[in-house]
Computed example of a mutant assay.
Amino acid sequence: MRNNPTGRQLRLGTELRKLRERAGLTSTQASKLLGVQQNQISNVEAGRAGVSPERVRALACHYDCGDRTLVSALSDMAAERIRGWWEEYREILPGGLVDLAEMEHHATRLTAGITAHIPGQLQIHDHAREVFRQVVPELSPPDIEHRLSFRIKRQAVLFNDAPTPYRAVIHEAALRMQFGGPAVTKKQLRHILDMSDHPHIAVQVIPFAAGAYPGSGQSILYAHGTVSPLDTVHLDQSHGSALLDAEAQLDKYRVLLERMTDLALEPHATREFIHAITQDL
């Protein structure tokens, strides 16, 4: 029995619960169909107990789920036995941060919409260190270094053998906020330009002139799953991270990011815009 299931294990259980509820079955009824104790269904749905791919397919059959791609994706999740690098930080960092790295690792695409900060995937060491120095309550030097190493390791999804496609829509305010002073800011902006040279990375800027837009007060990371029902939204908030996966929430943040993208400059114009800001520093 798991005492602290990961975000991915919780998500598998949540999706199985959604399938059961759509079928109009109680956990007791589901347990009878499968020939197990009721608490076993409850523990699986809560992420406290593992489940085999075969049992996932059996549950989907009992729940009359005809979405074969979704069932296949859930079966693959059940079959996972890897212990990712992020688990080394499970006892050091807040669980939401660790689950974020796990989510990014499994995403097929990542889309970020940011107003006040450079996205973590694009931050350089010196910029990120200054961001962590501003955390309230104040972090100790070791805690800052733990968070810094964790943030840099998260960026590996953009550099591995099969890099994850990544799009960042960044407001001009984030580009002009000088974390670490002009020299660090200039280095950070040049790094963003270098990153945008990669074919799998697209960067777009929303200039001040674009005016107001929906979602401007949030930092959004949309992780695309192997099938759309397994998409996840990560919100970076002052009181911690939040992972959202309800269908209505996913629809909402897809629309928000689409609107942000429509307002943003195209990648080529963005490069010219960022270059101009660096010239002012």
Rank of each mutant, 00 (worst) to 15 (best):
N4P: 08
R176Y: 06
M103S: 08
A30C: 12
Q155T: 11
T28M: 06
S228P: 12
S228W: 09
V169Y: 01
D143A: 15
A156M: 03
D143Y: 04
V44G: 00
E130Q: 13
G13C: 05
L93A: 07
G240W: 07
S219E: 14
D262W: 07
S149T: 06
R254E: 15
A183P: 01
E145L: 05
L110C: 07
T164G: 05
Q37P: 00
I170M: 13
S52I: 07
G95N: 11
I118H: 00
Q218G: 09
L12D: 00
R259W: 06
Q178C: 09
V98Q: 01
S196I: 04
D236T: 08
C61Y: 05
G66R: 08
R22S: 15
A276P: 01
L244V: 05
V71I: 07
W86H: 02
N43W: 09
A210W: 06
G35V: 06
H171V: 04
L263F: 08
V56L: 08
Q188N: 12
L12N: 01
I144K: 06
R20E: 01
Q29S: 05
M77Y: 02
R11F: 12
H125I: 11
C61S: 10
P5A: 10
L93K: 08
A202I: 03
R2V: 06
P182I: 04
E145C: 04
R176Q: 04
M1L: 13
R271Y: 02
Y213R: 05
T69H: 10
Q121T: 03
L25F: 12
T111M: 04
P182H: 13
A173S: 14
L12C: 06
P165V: 04
T6A: 06
H125Q: 15
Y166F: 15
Q121S: 09
E172H: 14
F159A: 11
I220V: 15
R147S: 04
A23K: 11
P142T: 12
L189M: 11
E91P: 02
E88K: 03
I124A: 06
L93F: 11
V136L: 12
L175C: 03
A60K: 00
E172M: 09
D231E: 15
T28G: 12
H224E: 15
R17V: 06
R109D: 10
I118F: 01
N3M: 14
R17W: 10
I220P: 01
S149V: 04
L244C: 06
I274C: 03
N43H: 14
L250S: 09
V135I: 10
L122Y: 03
F159R: 13
A264F: 02
D64M: 07
R167A: 05
T232G: 02
L139R: 07
L70Q: 07
H191D: 09
C65Q: 04
A223T: 05
G35T: 04
D126F: 05
T26K: 13
